[in-house]
Amino acid sequence: MAQLIKDGAIIDNEWTRLTVEQIEESGIPASGKIIVPLATWQSQRDEFIARGNVAVWLQAGEEPALIADDLEKLSLIAINFPIFRDGRGYSYARELRQRYNYQGEVRSIGDVLQDQLFYMWRCGFNAYEVRADRDINEALAAMKGFSVTYQADVHEPTPIYRRRPDWRVEQ
């Protein structure tokens, strides 16, 4: 089974992500944990809620406002990075946590590489599907690189100027 980093540990990935094409071809599996595209969720929302074990993934360009009303029905939101340099997902994660106070799993998917993980964590992601061709152990180890942050973030409620002299980051 594929693995991912979640809450600082490497675990098996129990969720299967489905694309629009896969759903068109094979339909929705009757059981198992699945992550469906936003459009699919929107068109079959009630059936999915009845089925259970359905999460949503947002494409870059699909912002959290589009799913805001359903957040309490969802235990996981995945945010796709079509390419690692597309930074929209950072704002989406931050909005999920801070504007909508979302408490479930926020997972990064797509072009997810180790040099992005610390920033993702700061913006509110707590799970990361590191790209399959990269060493997930190395990626996890590299997340602990920085002990200083200037700004407030999802974990650290205050910017450095409100927490001096105890400025160290707890991870």
Partner: peptide
């Protein structure tokens, strides 16, 4: 400068 340095949300504008 301090706000913008390693601001995690705005590293990939």
């Amino acid at each position: 400068r301090q706000w913008s340095t390693f601001n995690p949300e705005f590293a990939h504008l």
